[in-house]
Design a protein around this nucleic acid. Sequence first.
DNA 1: CAACAATACTTGACATGTCAACTAATTGTC
DNA 2: GACAATTAGTTGACATGTCAAGTATTGTTG
Lengths: 165, 165
Amino acid sequence: MPSRASRLQQEIKQNQPFRSAGQEAVLGLFKTADMLRRHVGKIVGQGGEAVELTLQQYNVLRILRGAGAEGLPTLEIAARMVEQAPGITRLIDRLEAKGLVARERCPEDRRRVTCRISRAGLALLARLDDQINRSEEIFAGVVSVADLKRLVEVLDRMRSVLETK
Amino acid sequence: MPSRASRLQQEIKQNQPFRSAGQEAVLGLFKTADMLRRHVGKIVGQGGEAVELTLQQYNVLRILRGAGAEGLPTLEIAARMVEQAPGITRLIDRLEAKGLVARERCPEDRRRVTCRISRAGLALLARLDDQINRSEEIFAGVVSVADLKRLVEVLDRMRSVLETK
DNA sequence: CAACAATACTTGACATGTCAACTAATTGTC
DNA sequence: GACAATTAGTTGACATGTCAAGTATTGTTG
């Protein structure tokens, strides 16, 4: 019995079947992440009335909110990013320009620059929280919590072989 | 019994646990895709001796190889991309500049531009094939084929709710 | 068959990402 | 305490991505 074309195969109009489960998984991962990225990017990027963010900028704000009042040095933020961000300095430049983040050279170690989220940054995140939370639960209808947990677990193992650099 | 911090949590040094399985899945997906993207990007991007490609450029070449001698119109390529590529024209401009793709205005419908992979493009892909195939099988040791298939299936369902634009 | 809409790209302007130097401050090391 | 090595961040140059508006060509409709 010839298996029907997979969903992904149809999506990218590929006529040959995939060479392996590995290949299909990798492409499916890329495509899903790209769609998700655009989906969330639209939420943080439209701003409603106020400031527009990129996904990366949003991630920085989230990290700084988590860090609280002490803030974090620049490269420590980079280390916590979900996606690598070699251009962290300029990323934060833009957030500072929008008044969402404040920077200050650290007195104890003058090489460091401590970054803190501003009142305005916190307010912006607060406005986005609901929409973001909802968008993370968007899969509730089609994927069970058990499936999500298995997914997380498999992704963990995949990253373990990609580590590092 | 308090569950230990998840792997992802440690990776991004997050002190609070994730709000939900959905959130952890979304972030894990982003992180895994980013790492994979860099991994594959390094393969196609170093060129060895010859031409360097971006992941997107590589994807275009793969699509054109699959299309064979008739080639494909520009936007049809865009439709088949794994990741959306609004800048498809300039993406192909660069491939043409490197001599990997040839373009020709379609005689039947002069709005269209037919793109074909060149001899050099095919040769480049041939040189990359082995490395790419190997990189897609990199997970063989840590993730079973059954797990990969389940992963693919869950990703399919996730994309179904993201559709569309 | 003229006029309007739709299609298939192209282009411009600008934001963002990326890599490789480069500077400044701090930490060993003898 | 001088000097190299390390760490933290910045900058420049350039590639790529993104959105909106523009152009040429083909369908469609009164």
